[in-house]
């Protein structure tokens, strides 16, 4: 099996607070890998490190065997690494159509094209339409993103990441905050991701994690506690302790 994404001894601290400790993680090609852990364990920080939003204090990051530790955020995207955000990061004034259109244009290397008007390329339009259709966004494609219901925004958050055609996709709690009625669309979209896309999923909903993942890493206090296939992780006493402990606190 080839490794799609790997970290070696990753370290990150904010001031005196260590939030990532000597983290070595391997995500296999085509895997459905879940990263779980209690609140504040440092899961989002890992994603920020992987995508280059934060710079690590130590350690390396490899994408398909190539060191990307020092690469700028946008360059990693062009190399096939994409993400969604735990808290929506969308363009309030743009429409879903424009949001997806931009992602597609950038992927095709046409984002700096200042002479061609939007909407004049058939293949781009085709792809926008497909993506919008897949995420049930066709009916709202021409509305300002800020005015969309939260569920739709959440779908757009995933759709725009998909539109960059990643080979490795990082999903940070895709269903967070979505009301039960709209949850189905999100879960279906996640389940329907193409098999050749490697997925690293962060999620608190254990039902979703165990139905989705073929491998699970448990992060506690920024360090890897356990890693293995779902049934092994479920049986692990340390994991039980962490989650039971949390349940007792909550």
């Amino acid at each position: 099996m080839t490794i799609a994404l790997e970290t070696r001894g990753l370290e990150k601290s904010f001031g005196g607070l260590k939030v990532t400790r000597d983290l070595s993680l391997k995500v296999e090609q085509g895997a459905r890998h879940a990263l779980i852990g209690p609140n504040g364990a440092g899961k989002t920080t890992v994603i920020n490190l992987l995508t280059g939003v934060l710079k690590p204090n130590g350690g390396r990051i490899l994408l398909e065997g190539n060191d990307i530790t020092d690469l700028a955020v946008h360059k990693r995207v062009l190399r096939g690494l994409s993400r969604t955000f735990q808290i929506n990061q969308l363009y309030a004034d743009l429409t879903p159509l424009e949001t997806i259109g931009l992602a597609v244009s950038e992927r095709l290397g046409r984002g700096g094209d200042w002479w061609r008007r939007m909407g004049t390329r058939g293949d781009v339009n085709q792809e926008i339409a497909e993506t919008l259709g897949r995420f049930h966004l066709l009916d709202v494609m021409n509305e300002r993103t800020a005015t969309l219901p939260y569920g739709k925004q959440r779908l757009l958050e995933i759709a725009v990441a998909i539109a960059t055609r990643p080979r490795v996709l990082l999903l940070d709690e895709p269903a967070a905050g979505v009301p039960e009625s709209e949850r189905h669309d999100i879960l279906a979209a996640v389940a329907a991701l193409p098999r050749d896309v490697t997925v690293l999923l962060i999620e608190h909903d254990m039902d979703l994690v165990f139905s989705f993942a073929d491998r699970i890493s448990v992060l506690v206090n920024g360090a890897m506690l356990v890693e293995g296939p779902p049934d092994e992780v479920a049986r692990d006493p340390q994991v039980k302790a962490v989650y039971l402990g949390e349940a007792v606190h909550a």
């Binding site: 946008h74 062009l78 992602a103 244009s105 700096g112 061609r116 008007r117």
Partner: peptide, 28 residues
């Protein structure tokens, strides 16, 4: 012409949310 091009669109995206813009591959 410029503002209605993909380039112009990417500018509006950057203004709205530079973090997201870079996360879809825009060289901000």
């Amino acid at each position: 012409r410029i503002v209605n091009s993909p380039f112009g669109l990417s500018l509006r995206a950057i203004k709205n949310n530079p973090l997201r813009a870079s996360a879809i591959g825009v060289p901000v």
